[in-house]
Design a protein around this nucleic acid. Sequence first.
DNA 1: TTGAAATATGAATCAGTATTCATGTTTCAT
DNA 2: ATGAAACATGAATACTGATTCATATTTCAA
Lengths: 196, 196
Amino acid sequence: MATNPYPRTKRGAERREQILRAAEAMIGTQGFSAASIADITRHAKTALGTFYIYFSSKEDVFRELVLEMGQLTRAMVTQAVADAPNRLEAERAGLKAFLRFVAERPSLYRIVEEARFIDVEAYKAYFTNFAKAYAAQLREAEASGELRPGDAEVRAWALMGIAKTLGERYVLWDETADIDHVVDEAYSMIRDGIAP
Amino acid sequence: MATNPYPRTKRGAERREQILRAAEAMIGTQGFSAASIADITRHAKTALGTFYIYFSSKEDVFRELVLEMGQLTRAMVTQAVADAPNRLEAERAGLKAFLRFVAERPSLYRIVEEARFIDVEAYKAYFTNFAKAYAAQLREAEASGELRPGDAEVRAWALMGIAKTLGERYVLWDETADIDHVVDEAYSMIRDGIAP
DNA sequence: TTGAAATATGAATCAGTATTCATGTTTCAT
DNA sequence: ATGAAACATGAATACTGATTCATATTTCAA
């Protein structure tokens, strides 16, 4: 259940990373149950038993991948949003960055979504943490008059929902979609709504 | 792989339905892989082998449940939206109806989401069909001036994303949430956006 | 009423794979 | 340089659960 101790040697650290990357590739493409430990270690060019030196179970690597994804996503969005002139532009930039991220690491995206069925706690933590930070930003912007007043938490979840679904539809399913167009249209709706 | 022929006798039709309902209950609460055929038939008070008279595999019942969910959701939303005075009010009514549906049949909702990992085609079909009808409605409303012009397809997916995520966060995860409040806030954002 | 088709049963088959472990090999602080 | 701690190996273990099948029982059209 618990994560194994971190490797003490350089070789150990490298092996662990190899296995983690192999797990990302295998679980990300085949899914959690279809990806076997044997697949993972084969892909990592290491022996089967080596897996258990670094991870205590398949669920364990999986959890680590979900955590990693959370950190990566947050870091990437934070950075993408950093130099937006105001909150509205930050929304556009954040959405675009997220969709780009999905395009670049579709496997990690899939892993996060599958977490819902493998490790609910990790899944909830991922989105709850993200939503908390997101809502705080919205509240600040609202206070400074950059946004119309409204429930920041509901808005944060709604906006995350938009990003997730558009990522799935226009990035994962449709490799020819015009991302910029999608972002523009979604942003327009987010900013001004659909009322005439 | 293919669905078995529909039962010829009354008893057969009843058994099939029993098993389908048991599969909904088991897969909906335990998840696809954790729910065994033995669980399902035990819950349906029938013998293990009986399952295979009506369904060719576990994936087969699962697919049927996803289809059923699609029909139910569409029927329910269509009806809820039927007597809205205009498209904007239809949006509010549709969102509220969807959240109520999630509250009433959390297991079917979970099944649809898990379909993404068990039967991608069924999953895509579910949302693609829904989105197609949804976008058509939006286009009509736009043509009659009830909505501000915009890409109806992107809007449809974005709006579905909002509904899905709010359903997950405020209905499945939080049984004490004030659904009406959530609907009002989300609707306000959908109608007028977040710009001041 | 009757027998061919449908349906019911659950033990047995069959396949897959997560995890362990006994046995080497490598690393690195001393 | 050296030996105790880390790490590597993959065959063997242990278990689960989907699917099949030979054998009853029930249904219902003729």
